[in-house]
Amino acid sequence: MARKIAVGMAEYRVSNDPEDVLCVLGLGSCVGVCLYDPVRRIGGMVHVLLPEHLPGQSNPFKFADTAVPALLAEVEKAGASRRNVFAKISGGARMFSGADTLFDIGKRNAEAVREALKALGIPLKGEDIGGNRGRSIFFYLEDGRLEIKILGRDAMVI
């Protein structure tokens, strides 16, 4: 039986059970970052809120620049091999129309995630970023596919 594991805000989950599905329900400007080793079928997901680490904050999983290396360390700890690992990312929407740049944080989050992946040399195999709609995302550890659902639209897979 596939097990759905929800990843809360500023949290991460890692699993080596290919039956598991890591998910975020109702993702807005946050970004869900998925790392996957297709050979060992081990994966992890982190749900980041902000682009850069703020001084005095202890949780590395809240910020893109610290969350991506921290998640990589966790999937490696679970048995993934770094040279196999690829990434898929989704989220970073701009939810409110009529607002000024106040809500442009989604775009900055996505940029910070891409930069962190690049710095670690992890290939980005798929992304669905931006727009003005919220998403629910489901990361299947059997094959590393990422399913994305938006209200009133058909689900898509990257």
Partner: peptide, 18 residues
């Protein structure tokens, strides 16, 4: 006012970030 129609999680997460 800025308005959005969407999933509750997605709407609240934006404000939480702010």
């Amino acid at each position: 006012p800025a308005i959005a129609v969407d999933m509750a999680g997605a709407i609240v997460d934006v404000v939480l970030i702010e």
